[in-house]
Write a protein that binds this DNA or RNA. Structure first.
Lengths: 203, 203
DNA sequence: CCATTTATTTAGTGATCGATACAGAAATAA
DNA sequence: TTATTTCTGTATCGATCACTAAATAAATGG
């Protein structure tokens, strides 16, 4: 089956990539349609034909972010031999990915739509859900470590998971404010200093 | 000298307080003039006569936030007997103040204007400066603790200060996402578990 | 009283927001 | 060729943005 009609004159994937970087740098409400169309090199009708709406474009941008930048941060998490190495690697990768010279600083999912009250826009709720998933992922890794005997059953899985995600999210703000890669890595190291105390058996 | 002209028909301080809570809940760009005037119970010309512009109103709101909510968080910091108690108290107060039932969740200075590229708007730069001042304040307290012999000279003052501020800032996002007060307090406790390791003499 | 001063209400300003109507262009199908 | 389909550029749409001009209201000074 061959496609009918006039062929699209721009690279959809490339246009999406440019939109993602704009949203990443300036957040959802911080980017206007005219900025998007200018950066993507297309006119509004082409954007809407290809991506439906600003909302839908943002969702696709977030999905692309997760499969590229997010993967750079989380790929080592599941493969790490121990929970400690998984968390340490996550923080280290976050520090590095939040401070690249050729990319916006910080995390799109953390900084992309912090506006508004709780449960305001759909975009906001989607990002909050993704942020929650990070905590859940750490919790599950910690529970696996308990099941495998690496960590004692007495640890507070939820608190530890929330603690390390809180640091990761705070690093996004630090990165946006100009903290150097070295400083972000130092923060990650500081966070891991708590590991032994947090995971020791306390009966 | 008595004031001339028609007297103002609204309470300026009360109107400012309402504006502060709106900005706190929804950030600078997230609040529109019509929302402000509605909540403050006045018309746009009255707002501009009393506060000059949305920018200036936001600055006054931030100043009010610092002298009220900010004071709730930081008042115990300088009076604490030790650096450890100062930092622990700061995190505990942050957890509590970011999760009050009658107030917006999180911190206005952290969440008030995260939009935009680095050094974009004046509002953004002002808040970034205030965020930096938090790090500086912790640094100075740690240096004082060194001078007083509480902590060894070998500690990395900047890294430790940035680490604890990073947690405080991350707690704003957690609070905005709905984390309970208990969970925020647990995060603060987790952060203090690192204290001994971070401040031990390592020569 | 009247002049002056300041605040208020009404009713807008131009600019920009996200999103589209419409006509023409460029492909396939028959 | 002609019909159909889909994309593209121009030129907007109504809504909302931050903000204000103009007339009126309410106080004081003389």
């Amino acid at each position: 089956m061959v496609e009918r009609g006039r062929p699209r004159s721009f690279d959809r994937a490339d246009a999406l990539r440019r939109a993602m970087e704009l949203f990443w740098a300036k957040s959802y409400e911080g980017v206007s349609l005219s900025e998007l169309t200018t950066s993507m090199g297309i006119n509004p009708p082409s954007l809407y034909a290809a991506f439906t709406s600003k909302d839908a474009l943002f969702r696709e941008a977030v999905a692309l972010y997760r499969s590229t930048e997010g993967d750079r941060t989380w790929s080592g998490f599941e493969t790490a031999a121990t929970a400690r190495e998984a968390v340490a690697g996550l923080l280290k990768a976050s520090a590095e990915n939040y401070s690249r010279d050729d990319k916006p600083r910080g995390c799109l999912i953390v900084l992309g739509a912090l506006h508004c009250d709780l449960s305001n826009t759909a975009v906001n709720r989607d990002l909050a859900d993704l942020r929650m998933q990070c905590v859940k992922q750490l919790q599950e890794r910690l529970e696996r470590a308990i099941a495998e005997g690496e960590l004692p059953q007495t640890i507070d899985v939820q608190a530890i998971a929330t603690f390390y995600v809180t640091i990761q999210q705070g690093m996004s703000i630090q990165a946006r404010d100009g903290a150097s890669r070295e400083m972000l890595l130092a923060v990650a190291d500081c966070a891991m200093v708590a590991w032994n105390g947090l995971t020791v058996s306390q009966n």
